[in-house]
């Protein structure tokens, strides 16, 4: 399974990369493989508040729409505009294709996430 050791993972297939109080969020290679070709991404707006466990992004493939759940809580400070024009990037390079950057309100939530090894054990 293609995973990056330095990232944290949610059971619902999102990855989180922490930089200070900010967190980058995307979906795993495993998840994009199951979705098939992503054709459209619906991202939240900058300044939107998201809560851990709530749906905050919608991904569409040709014949399916999938909700993506926020792995941590916070305020959206940046969105990846590149994905809007080129959603296929999520298939090509899932770990570079972050959806949003979140200013975390409760950084300790990161501790509840899975390591790469734990995630792999769940889905291998």
């Amino acid at each position: 399974m293609n995973l990056l050791k330095e990232l944290k993972y949610a059971e619902s297939h999102e990855w989180v990369k922490v930089e200070g109080n900010k967190a980058y969020i995307g979906i795993t290679d495993y998840a994009q493989g199951h979705l098939g070709e992503v054709v459209y991404v619906e991202l939240p707006e900058v300044d939107a508040t998201v809560e851990a466990g709530s749906q905050f992004v919608v991904l569409e493939s040709v014949k399916a729409a999938s909700d993506v759940y926020a792995p941590i809580s916070g305020t959206v400070v940046e969105i990846n505009e590149n994905l809007i024009d080129n959603p296929g990037l999520i298939n090509e390079s899932p770990y570079e294709s972050w959806f949003v950057v979140i200013e975390m309100t409760n950084p300790s939530e990161v501790d509840n996430l899975l390591s790469a090894d734990d995630y792999e054990k769940l889905y291998a």
Partner: peptide, 13 residues
């Protein structure tokens, strides 16, 4: 196209 808006995929959404 854009079928993911439709009932046979999105159902109640």
């Amino acid at each position: 196209t854009l079928q993911t808006r439709e009932q046979h995929i999105r159902r109640e959404k």
